[in-house]
Nucleic acid binder design. Sequence first.
DNA 1: TTCGATGCAAATACTTTGCACGATA
DNA 2: TATCGTGCAAAGTATTTGCATCGAA
Lengths: 154, 154
Amino acid sequence: MLIATLKELFAEHGLKFTNQRYLVYRTMAAARDHPSAETVWRRVRGEAPAISLDTVYRTLAAFETRGLVARVPGGGDEGRFDGDATPHHHLVCLSCGAIEDFSMPGAGLADLPPEVSAWGRVRDAQVLVRGVCRRCLCQVENQQPDANQRSECR
Amino acid sequence: MLIATLKELFAEHGLKFTNQRYLVYRTMAAARDHPSAETVWRRVRGEAPAISLDTVYRTLAAFETRGLVARVPGGGDEGRFDGDATPHHHLVCLSCGAIEDFSMPGAGLADLPPEVSAWGRVRDAQVLVRGVCRRCLCQVENQQPDANQRSECR
DNA sequence: TTCGATGCAAATACTTTGCACGATA
DNA sequence: TATCGTGCAAAGTATTTGCATCGAA
């Protein structure tokens, strides 16, 4: 995205354009791994060594409020953020914390039952799947040489 | 549930039967509001004033591991627990933190796309709806007497 | 020039852990 | 009686906040 365009986007949301916000935005747009605030911080520090962690927190909070990033639920103690704020679903590994996207027709906002609109105003709806990713399953399996059961690995 | 039955249930899961665990279990089974650990603690203290908060944390963790309670995702900073560990979906109010259940056929474990089973082993799947509940919407509306827009209240 | 944004440090909130004692099986 | 569970206090982790300074508009 062009810097000029991004400047406009920020202005539309009442946000001043700063180098820190630019870098956080760019990092989030490029990230596919739903990073935590601290992870974003580490990445951004490569280009702006002086940026502080609380600025990253504040920036992500400002972006989240305005729908520029989304907070991914179910990711354990630490908040995880998604640069893709369009509707989609998530797979969360309870073992390593990895988060992946997946798509599932028929489980979007339009498919919610009527009782939901009676409940209040919906901001977002997503399917959240929690489990253990294949990589973690295989690590455990490899530690037990007597694994003569069905393998979910490879 | 009979105490003898509960004793058995605990034994099946390798848990000793203690008064604290009994009370936490009973509280969770009766709760409909997906309480936090601290909320459970306050309730249990009515009957066991000496129970400590960390025992509640440990007990809920032990129950969660064994599938006796579930942790509800998306509930903000503090962990929220569900005495009903059977599959169902959740509505989370971002304003007051209230959590409600809802049901939605076609969005269960059996309806997940095949790519999910390739990802790893699924523990649970649920639809998570985040928004603002009607009660909170109406509070805001009542604070603005000039609310001549469509009302989601009443 | 003004007001929002940032960095620093301290504070807060929630949860976990070490340890000695107590209670269950 | 051996082991697990509990209470207490302290520690740990993630996040937020006060304040003075800085910088975008």
